[in-house]
Amino acid sequence: MSTTTEVGAGLLSGIRAFFATMTEDFVTAEYAGGCLIANLGAELEGSELLRSSLSSAWAAWRDGVATALREAQEQGTVRADIDELPLTDRGVGGLNVAEYRARRAAE
Rank of each mutant, 00 (worst) to 15 (best):
R79Y: 00
E45M: 04
V65H: 06
Q75I: 00
A102R: 12
I37C: 03
E71R: 12
D25W: 05
G46M: 09
F26E: 06
E6W: 02
A80M: 02
G93Q: 08
E24C: 04
Y31Q: 03
A38Q: 01
N39D: 10
E45W: 02
L85K: 14
E48F: 08
C35P: 04
T23D: 14
E48D: 10
A106C: 02
L54W: 11
L44A: 14
E99K: 14
G91E: 02
L95R: 06
A59G: 02
E30V: 12
L40N: 04
R104M: 13
T21L: 15
I82M: 09
A105C: 01
E107A: 05
A80E: 12
V27G: 03
W61A: 04
E84T: 12
Y100F: 13
V92A: 08
R90F: 04
C35W: 02
F26D: 06
A80S: 15
Y100R: 15
A17Y: 02
E71N: 07
R103A: 15
T23N: 08
F18N: 07
F19G: 02
E74D: 13
D83N: 08
V7Y: 13
T5K: 11
S55L: 13
Y100Q: 11
A29M: 07
T5Q: 09
G10M: 14
R101H: 11
L11K: 02
A98C: 05
E30I: 06
C35V: 01
A59T: 09
R90C: 04
G33H: 06
R104S: 03
L69R: 00
A98W: 13
N96F: 07
A68V: 14
G41Y: 13
L36D: 04
R101K: 12
R51P: 00
L44H: 15
R79W: 00
E99S: 13
E99D: 06
A102W: 06
G64I: 11
L36G: 07
S55D: 15
L44Q: 12
V97T: 13
R90G: 06
L49N: 02
I15Y: 04
D81I: 05
N39M: 05
W58C: 04
M1V: 11
A32L: 13
D25T: 10
E107G: 05
G33A: 06
A29K: 14
R104L: 14
V65R: 09
V97Q: 10
T23P: 01
R16T: 14
A98S: 13
V65C: 06
Y100E: 11
M1A: 15
T88S: 08
W61F: 11
F19R: 05
R90T: 04
L95M: 12
G14N: 06
L49S: 08
W61N: 08
L69D: 00
C35N: 06
A102H: 05
G10F: 12
T67K: 11
S52Q: 14
I37E: 04
G33M: 05
T21W: 14
I15C: 02
W61L: 09
D83W: 00
E107I: 00
A9M: 14
E6Q: 14
A17F: 03
Q75W: 05
Q75Y: 09
E6H: 03
A106S: 12
